[in-house]
Amino acid sequence: MTIQLGQIAPDFEQDSTHGPIRFHEWLGSGWGLFFSHPKNFTPVCTTELGEVARLRPEWDRRGVKPIGLSVDPVEAHHRWEADIAETQSATLDFPMIADPDMRVATLYGMIHPESDPTVTVRSVFVIDPAKKVRLILTYPSSTGRNFAEIIRAIDSLQLTDAQSIATPVNWEPGDAVVISPKLSDEEARRKFPQGFRTLKPYLRLVDMQ
């Protein structure tokens, strides 16, 4: 199955380290970060899970619930948690879905047969409060994810959902943003009384601070 931006994230019910999870019910009314790992007890995945746990204050600040997946059973997930705590000095406080039959991985297109038909690639899905998929990232198994970039993208999504703006290249929170071309100059002046800079009629920058 191919997941595309804007579609409703497929629902499922599956066992996890926090017990059985019905995905949409677990997401509730907030944002979700759903990410997969090729296999338990692998080096890159161990560092990633430790980082997601360390970033708990950042997820909470943005109303984001992280949840992982691996094609191993729950018992193996629990054993892996001990290794993560020992090597990464971080305690997993979010659920890890057990997917030994690859049912969820197949549902979300996480199995890439030409890469490896037995494990998932490093998939990332950011899901909004309406259960819509808003961001998709896919990494090869050899490349660990940059969670700072994932947080930056979530910041952009949450900011642009609330305003008629977009974020330009290399944007970081606090930087100038782009005014939507759908707004006329008159509408933009009403919406952004602090003023804006017009580089081209279609390229107007405004400071949000």
Rank of each mutant, 00 (worst) to 15 (best):
M1V: 13
G6T: 05
Q7I: 04
P10W: 06
G19F: 03
P20H: 00
I21R: 04
F23G: 14
H24V: 05
W26T: 00
L27Y: 00
G28T: 01
L33F: 14
V44P: 04
V44K: 01
E48W: 00
W59Q: 01
G63D: 04
P66D: 12
I67S: 08
V71P: 03
H78C: 05
W80C: 10
W80H: 11
A82R: 08
I84R: 02
L92C: 04
F94I: 01
P95E: 03
I97V: 08
D99G: 08
M102G: 00
R103W: 02
G109Q: 12
H112P: 03
S115D: 11
D116A: 08
P117R: 11
P129T: 07
K131E: 12
K132L: 15
V133M: 05
T138V: 15
T138L: 11
N146G: 05
N146K: 05
E149Y: 10
I150N: 04
R152C: 04
A153V: 15
D155P: 03
L157G: 11
A162K: 12
Q163R: 13
A166S: 15
P168W: 11
W171G: 02
E172M: 10
P173N: 07
D175C: 06
A176Y: 04
A176D: 12
L183H: 02
L183T: 00
E187D: 13
A188D: 07
K191M: 13
K191E: 15
T198G: 06
L199H: 08
R204N: 01
L205H: 02
D207H: 15
